[in-house]
Design a protein around this nucleic acid. Structure first.
Length: 576
DNA sequence: GCCGTTTTCGGCCCGACTGTTTTCAGTCG
């Protein structure tokens, strides 16, 4: 049973919860939580790195003690200290922390006053109205807890970025139309471009006395109010998405936007660095004593620390401060850098539009070239193309290009990578194409060794140009395939093979961490829509967001190249 | 438990809202 980084991170989170329930020093608790976050940000399995001699003590936030626990967990899957700690806390007590309004202090109070040891105990105690009698509890809190218990299933749900986006834009328009509102921005993980969004963090600059709180609570999509105040409110929308609002004066907008964009770890680093310079940063500005020396814009906040602007997608405490100090922040790719799209389907397979229709839509989306990459026959779920049907499509594309204006179609295919790593179409037909996009659509659960061999063989094929949605994960639906990614990345980097960042909202594959690791191995990428209809080219923006989170620059993405250069880039190792 | 351009010891980001209280602890972001 392999030990994943997530397993170790989860053990540290449990450590933190149990220490909190034991009344431990909060900074000791934070050390465990911080280390858990650091472990989650690693893409390569620690257990293997440790087997290769890597010392976890060199990870940020990991000292001798936690390094020892990491080693123990990575090699044995267990941690003696954690097991000892478990024995001192009732096993069900931790689940109380999953409830809103219940932290370690209240969980302990409930345990000590009423001997509550689980959510079920709590439910019974609430029914008997015993909770309201616990010191510093009361009727209102008891009612809130009853409500939370009833809706516990809702908690922790995250939304695809694209779903959150629809609600974000509508809410932004609603608030911006309010008299007295000067600026509105959606911050948080939405602004950092995370693939899923837990809630919408809204920052509003308004003239004094503007009642933004009421405007939010009376918004047509608002279902319930959680918190209400003149500068801070929280509501839940009808679809379950929580909205947290912050209202500040115009002079504080940049500081508030910075604060609410996060991430939390990034902000803690920022404020710690400010403190070292004798400055204090909060959501109202940067202060030296009582004097405000920055805060109207995000740039003014960073400038007080002598730092250049840090793009929101980088603010995860993954080295962006060190890069900023060293003047090595990347010039992140932008949507306008994309000149074409290298993965799209038509009604010849599972798309909804004709070849000409897709071309028109791509041109309208300002693309200069579009690769038509319908499925090969192997994929059972759709009517894939066999060699003859693909040959017919090649003829259609040649005819289209002969008469088209403003866009060039590239001849391609999305060919299945079979279980053994061979491709599902013969070389004769693949050799007539401008590019071959290979993808895994089956046998997702092969062992790491066999899955790795499969991808390496596909990369070695000679005609394969692009490995599409490499991990094959579907967000919240299907785990990524198990594979020795560093080896695959090295192989791709050594060949004229490129890895896709697939922009479909449920894929976004490669993800940010994997793409960043691949880039450091020398891999180059394409950002592709995998369009199945004429409206899908706008999805490319999501692929660009993911690429930005991976610190990618335009030069690392081949479909930023003009067509002639792209054709040279795609030249194969095997001549046609 | 971690960490060092004040520090190997003594710090560790900062503020709003709620409920239970009559001044503040707890939670959350």
């Amino acid at each position: 049973m392999p030990i994943h980084n997530e397993d170790i991170a989860a053990a540290f989170d449990e450590f933190a919860d149990l220490l909190a329930l034991s009344g431990e020093n909060q900074f000791r608790i934070r050390a465990y939580r911080h280390a858990a976050e650091v472990l989650r940000s690693l893409s390569e399995p620690l257990s293997r790195r440790i087997a290769g001699g890597f010392d976890p003590d060199t990870l940020p936030g990991v000292g001798a003690d936690l390094a020892g626990k990491i080693r123990e967990l990575a090699t044995t899957g267990r941690c003696a200290a954690l097991e000892r700690l478990r024995a001192t806390v009732p096993p069900g007590l931790r689940e109380l922390l999953f409830l809103p309004d219940v932290g370690p202090q209240r969980a302990r109070a409930l345990h000590e006053a009423l001997d509550i040891r689980s959510l079920e105990d709590l439910r019974v105690a609430i029914e008997q109205h015993r909770v309201r009698k616990v010191p510093r509890f009361g009727v209102k809190l008891e009612n809130r807890l009853a409500e939370s218990l009833a809706t516990l299933a809702q908690r922790g749900k995250r939304f695809h970025w694209s779903v959150a986006d629809r609600y974000a834009r509508a809410l932004e328009r609603h608030l911006a139309s309010l008299p007295g509102v000067l600026q509105v921005a959606i911050a948080g993980s939405y602004r950092r471009g995370r693939e899923t969004v837990g809630d919408l963090d809204v920052v509003v600059a308004a003239q004094p006395g503007t009642d933004v709180d009421s405007a939010l609570r009376q918004y047509e999509e608002t279902k319930a109010t959680l918190v209400s105040g003149p500068t801070r409110s929280s509501v839940v929308l009808r679809n379950g998405l929580q909205v947290d609002l912050r209202v500040v004066p115009a002079a504080s907008f940049g500081a508030a936007l910075y604060y609410f964009t996060g991430s939390k770890d990034h902000n803690i680093r920022l404020r710690t660095q400010a403190a070292a310079l004798g400055l204090k940063i909060n959501e109202y500005g940067v202060f030296r004593g009582s004097e405000c020396i920055g805060g109207s814009t995000e740039g003014s906040v960073l400038a007080t620390l002598g730092l250049p602007y840090i793009e929101p997608e980088l603010r995860e405490d993954r080295g962006e401060f060190e890069a900023a100090v060293a003047g090595r922040l990347p010039r992140l790719i932008a949507g306008v850098d994309l000149r074409g799209d290298l993965h799209a389907h038509t009604s010849a397979t599972d798309g909804t539009a004709t070849l000409a229709g897709m071309a028109r839509a791509a041109r309208a989306a300002q693309l200069r070239y579009l690769a038509i990459t319908d499925h090969s026959r192997y994929l059972g779920a759709v009517h894939g193309l066999d060699a003859a049907a693909l040959a017919a499509q090649i003829g259609q594309i040649d005819a289209f290009n002969a008469s088209a204006r403003g866009i060039t179609l590239l001849k391609g295919v999305e060919v299945d990578i079979l279980e053994d790593g061979s491709l599902a179409l013969p070389d004769e037909i693949l050799g007539r194409l401008d590019l071959v996009v290979g993808a895994v659509h089956s046998h997702f659960t092969l062992s790491r060794r066999r899955q790795t061999e499969r991808l390496l063989r596909a990369l070695d094929h000679g005609y394969l140009s692009i490995l599409a949605h490499p991990s094959a994960r579907l967000i919240d639906q299907r785990e990524p395939i198990d594979c020795d990614w560093p080896t695959v990345f090295r192989a791709a980097a050594e060949r004229p093979c490129f890895l896709e960042i697939n922009a479909q909202p449920s894929r976004l594959d490669l993800n940010d961490l994997m793409a960043r690791e691949a880039a450091s191995a020398g891999v180059r990428f394409c950002i592709a829509s995998d369009a199945h209809g004429v409206g899908d080219f706008e999805l490319l923006a999501g692929g660009v967001r993911q690429a930005r989170r991976a610190w990618l620059e335009a030069s690392q993405v081949i479909n930023t190249q003009p067509l002639a250069q792209l054709r040279r880039t795609l030249r194969r190792t095997f001549l046609k």
